[in-house]
């Protein structure tokens, strides 16, 4: 399965997608609003992206970037999908109904980065205490007691 075919398919689903092939895998820059439709299409497409093996977020100080690593257990090809989010109101659609592993991963990103996943069935803190304030993995997080500046 070639990257070209995947690119054609994604362009068909989301016209605004930008591709980048400089890294190890094909990287797609998607609009947050188009992500859900794109995810559904990718999962159901002939490329069978049935395995979401990594879901995380990066804080670029100006914006947040959601990173989804998708793979197929049938064809073994991998793509990376990125979506830039507004740092003050980061909202993106959940994909936990498409890949159930996203349930836990999104909860983790929710508490560590403050990204709200609309439509998530159970968006609560998973790792941190319920009364924890702030988003530890953001770059501007300060904790004078537990963080040692090197």
């Amino acid at each position: 399965m070639h990257n070209e075919a995947i690119k054609d398919f994604i362009t068909g689903v989301a016209t605004s997608a930008i591709f980048d092939e400089s890294g190890e895998w094909l990287t797609v820059q998607a609009e947050p609003a188009a992500w859900k439709a794109m995810a559904t299409a990718l999962r159901q497409s002939q490329f069978v992206f049935d395995y979401l093996f990594c879901l995380t977020c990066i804080d670029w100080k100006t914006h947040l970037t959601m990173v989804y690593h998708l793979s197929s257990t049938v064809y073994r090809h991998t793509i990376v999908i990125k979506a830039n989010l507004d740092r003050s109101h980061p909202v993106i659609d959940t994909v936990s109904d498409i890949w159930r592993t996203a349930d836990f991963h999104e909860r983790e990103v929710f508490e560590l980065f403050g990204v709200v996943f609309s439509g998530h069935p159970d968006l609560r803190k998973l790792i941190l205490p319920d009364d924890f304030e702030g988003f530890p993995l953001r770059k501007d997080f300060e904790d004078p007691i537990n963080m040692i500046k090197l």
Partner: peptide
């Protein structure tokens, strides 16, 4: 899985560890 985002510095900009137990536990 180890996901390193590098900005070219001496320390990683962001590291994500995709741990097997986390996903297995969710099942």
């Amino acid at each position: 899985g180890v996901y390193i985002v590098s900005e070219g510095g001496t320390t990683p900009y962001r590291i994500k560890f995709r741990s097997p137990g986390f996903s297995n536990l969710s099942a």
